[in-house]
Amino acid sequence: MITLALRSRPPGRLSLAGVTPDRLAALDETAIAKLPVRLGNRQTALGDWFDIRIAGAGEDKLVISGAGGDRLDQVGGMMASGELTVEGDVGARAGLAMTGGRLTVSGSAGDAAATAMRDGEIRIGGDVGEALGGALPGERVGMRGGTVVVARNAQSGVGDRMRRGLVVVVGSAGAFCGARLAAGTIVVGGGIGDHPGIAMRRGSIVALGAAPRLAPSFADCGVHDLIAQHLLARRLALLGLGTLASRIGPLRRFMGDQAEAGRGEILVPR
């Protein structure tokens, strides 16, 4: 296991893209310390900011600790395998373009977590900022696979243009949740902001809190206890979200956005 202990809060945004357990596993402490990381637009070395300790060789496990992690951006960016644990908060774009492995953040994450994520698992112990699971600027689709679990609340724009994967927000989600959703599944345990699923084409938004205000372009298709809901509940239980899973019973199904392809669904308490 490799431990990176942050000495102090960086004076600006420090990008940790590419500092991932799979890439660090084969390196010694000296080589790890020399890895380039960017502070704003300035090139620095990882060893300038972190105390590095390796215990046990060849393990795909990386721990980042220390106060001030909210200035660490792109934590777990490009990660392909292994396990990255952050003891504390992280900044923007955690898990950027992740293709595998598991990123666990005990605290909160900033904006744009899981942007362009393709596979793997991200667990956020606190809140997340805006645009969870969204797209990179200029790209047509957002998150394309994998699983994201947020233990508390998410701000606006969850799953914007998401194409595949599962996003679970145990608490509440802000406005435009699942907007322009192409496919995939978003589960929100608490309240959900305005304009959920606006312009969504396919995919599922399961809003288990108070029934959200929906645009008139969502058609009421009645209350159902669908097998797909059972499968989703099982999946949530496997993720350790048994309490949330137990709340998935018969739900009212709205299909939309009829202003778009209209094959998406928003499932709400009846």
Partner: peptide, 24 residues
């Protein structure tokens, strides 16, 4: 045209609307 795919974990399912709900 009313069918929908649903991927959960590493499994992909098809949901086909039928008269008693959905055939998964």
């Amino acid at each position: 045209g009313y069918q929908a795919a649903k991927r959960l974990g590493d499994k992909r399912y098809w949901r086909i609307p039928v008269m008693d709900g959905e055939f998964v």
